[in-house]
Amino acid sequence: MEERVNRRTFLKLLMGVPAFGAIAAALSPLLRYLKPNLPPYQLNPLTVGDKPHGSPVVAATLSELREPWSYKYFTFVQQYPQYTPEGFKNATVPGVVIRLPRKVVLPWEWAGEKRKESDIVAFSRICPHLGCIFNYVPEWKEITSGYGGYVPPPDRRHALMGCPCHLSIYDPADPDVPGRVLSGPAPRPPRTFLFAVKEGDIVITDVEPGGIA
């Protein structure tokens, strides 16, 4: 089997390069055909006017959250500019606001707030694992019975948060990392909402950017 690349074969191979280029050039618009016409905002650089903005929403009143571990679900609406006749696309972010029995440092580095302490905390309920909506579970025994059999250590036997899909368990009251992942495949704690207390209302103004992970 003595085969050497002779001049003819070599030239033939060389011919293949522009041919391949031509095929790729012809296929590229076909691949672009698959591309959705709604751009995701992560892939393209945002101009200032293109950033999604949310309309402030009152999640709860302070009187509703007087007791420790009391909570309330709410929905925060983010508006994404979109170049369609409607102009905007609404994306809803389900959230939960919780009154904790002690103060924690709010994980608000994303908003430039380093050391703000509060006993009220608001989490996005979108699970950072694969995007399901997780629940606030006031009774930890329900976590053990309904979310795969996880038994929290004695100092965490209080209300927890659990995701129905893949059983990630979060501790909303962890003093260092509110929303710490206690169990399950979640790669990080859930995202948080920025809020301010105005005249007895807890007003949600923004949500930490990003979807999963």
């Binding site: 909506i133 129905p164 893949h166 495949p185």
Partner: peptide, 23 residues
């Protein structure tokens, strides 16, 4: 998201695997 939530039967084993492993 309802609790519990299952997939079609032939994905169930894979689903359990996804619970056990990092994403």
């Amino acid at each position: 998201t309802p609790l519990p939530i299952l997939s079609d039967w032939y994905f169930l084993a894979l689903y359990q695997f996804v619970k056990y492993t990092p994403p």
